[in-house]
């Protein structure tokens, strides 16, 4: 009984996410060419910015990030390791160059061109280069950044998450990219994991898988980036060993993704099991994308300052342009 009591606060929010996912499935099925995942995000944005999310639903809605990460773990079942290994070194090279180059570019643009001081340039650089808001928070914790700087940087990243979520699928179609090219391009250029996966799946299932895998490779660099920043700012505590800090920032669900990919590619899962797991993964993505839409508040995004927007815009334009050339040439 007590477990039910523990679950009770989450029921309204989960019902809201489930209702949104059902609506997206029905509408996506009824209108040809309309992706349910795109409808899920749009429905969430409209609901959050018109009627708002009821306070009782907040705890359940907050589980959308867990749904996204669990969906990514299960996505491992649909990944062909041979294909991944073939493109792996190229994609990994692209990711490392984009993250390292993106960090240096944002720092230089923020401090040199826009004259932003303090930790804000580093927060913006981490958010734009690695993995969105979670990178802002992780690097902010390492640098002991002020709450206002954190909020500012996170809001800037969220603004671009919202814009790129719409712009990238449109650009991908206009540019005539293949599913793999588009997935890797979005995975290298966009910011937070949810919007990257959503944009990828808005293009096609294959693009969604490539976008997610590429983004996971970027996310795995967060620990290293956080340690590099702590060393650069000389703010690292002497009692906190590097390996521990690296591990603390490492996204653990990535291990689950690799484990499930190994299980599936090891022949332990029947094709019926893989189909069913993929369906569960799709369902979790739908729920997660409704939650992602619900977390986008247009009014809050309007309050973002011009200088951080300028920094992140330069970063996005340069990195996405170079990444586009790279994916077209190499993949």
């Amino acid at each position: 009984m007590t477990i039910l009591d523990d679950l009770r606060p989450y029921v309204p929010g989960l019902a809201l996410l489930g209702g949104g996912a059902l609506f997206a499935t029905l509408l996506g099925g009824a209108v040809s060419g309309l992706q349910p995942l795109v409808v899920a995000v749009a429905a969430g944005v409209v609901a959050a910015n018109t009627v708002g999310t009821p306070a009782a639903a907040e705890p359940g809605v907050a589980l959308h990030k867990l749904a996204l990460e669990t969906g990514i773990v299960l996505l491992g079942a649909a990944i062909a390791i041979e294909e991944l290994a073939a493109a792996g070194p190229t994609v990994l090279g692209l990711v490392v160059v984009a993250v390292a180059g993106g960090l240096l570019l944002s720092e230089a643009v923020a401090r040199g061109l826009f004259r932003i001081g303090g930790t804000t340039p580093s927060l913006l650089a981490a958010g734009a280069s690695v993995c969105g808001v979670s990178a802002v928070v992780a690097v902010g914790r390492v640098l002991e950044a002020r709450g206002a700087a954190l909020t500012f940087a996170a809001a800037t990243v969220l603004l671009f998450d919202a814009v790129t979520l719409v712009a990238f699928p449109l650009a991908g179609e206009w540019l005539g990219l293949t599913a793999r090219q588009f997935g890797v391009w979005a995975g290298v250029s966009m910011f937070s994991t949810g919007p990257v996966a959503a944009a990828g799946f808005a293009h096609s299932t294959e693009a969604g898988q490539w976008a997610t895998v590429t983004k996971l490779a970027r996310n795995s660099l967060l620990g290293g980036v956080a340690v590099a920043y702590s060393v650069a700012y000389a703010a690292r505590s002497a009692t906190d060993p590097e390996a521990r800090e690296l591990w603390a920032e490492f996204p653990k669900f990535l291990l689950g993704f690799l484990l499930v990919a190994a299980i599936a590619n090891g022949g332990l899962l029947s094709s019926a099991a893989i189909d069913s797991i993929t369906a569960v993964s799709d369902g979790l993505f739908l729920v997660a994308f409704v939650g992602l839409g619900l977390s986008i508040r247009v009014r809050e995004l309007r309050s973002v300052g011009l200088a951080p927007v300028g920094v992140v815009l330069v970063h996005l334009l340069v990195v996405s342009a170079l990444a586009l050339v790279a994916v077209r040439t190499l993949l």
Partner: peptide, 24 residues
Amino acid sequence: LDRGWQALCLGLAIVFVHLVIYPV
């Protein structure tokens, strides 16, 4: 638990259930 661990546990639990329901 860290959310990443929660996702890993949930994901593996779902895969385990599938291993039982749909044996190779």
